[in-house]
Design a binder for these strands. Structure first.
Length: 150
DNA sequence: GCCAACGTTGGC
DNA sequence: GCCAACGTTGGC
């Protein structure tokens, strides 16, 4: 079992939204590095649900990967904002994954706070200029974040 | 809304 | 294959 962190704009999907839905499809990833991480995920893996581009950026809860990634249908939908004219049913460059809600943190662990943690210094999340939206988390980093929960 | 940093595109 | 121009991300 592996650990991950995935960024979502709460306007698109928030941890509360996932809690309400129970399960959701995580799609629209259009960055090759992030996509490769999606493809490396397996059912049962857990991830930190991060809220980005919002008033309080930070880790808002935990989700779980339902099963391995599959071709992202939004890449083939002309009406989708994630439409990719270069992709086809035969050759879809992008992947999506189904996720389930595990836990909503009582308070968001703010980015500002996470940046102060020495144990998290190696995470792309806290590194200047990093825009990676899906990233691996080590067992040590996972435990360090869990320890910060209120 | 600004802007730094990064990724992608496309001419050559 | 280089690299300038452009587009996007995402914190502030």
């Amino acid at each position: 079992m592996a650990y991950w962190l995935m960024k979502s704009e709460p306007d698109e999907l928030s941890i509360k939204g996932l809690e309400t839905l129970g399960k959701a499809r995580w799609d629209g990833v259009r960055n090759y590095q992030a996509r490769n991480f999606l493809r490396a995920m397996a059912g049962g893996d857990e991830f930190f649900f991060y809220h980005s581009s919002c008033p309080e950026p930070g880790i808002a809860g935990i989700g779980q990967i339902v099963e391995a990634a599959y071709p992202d249908p939004t890449a083939l939908e002309p009406e989708s904002v994630y439409f990719d004219p270069k992709s086809s049913p035969e050759k879809n460059a992008w992947s999506a994954i189904d996720v389930a809600h595990v836990e909503t943190f009582p308070k968001v662990l703010k980015l500002e706070y996470l940046k102060q943690q020495a144990a998290l210094a190696e995470m792309p999340l806290v590194q200047k200029g990093s825009r990676l939206s899906v990233m691996p988390v080590t067992a040590e980093q996972w435990a360090a974040v869990i320890a910060l929960k209120p």
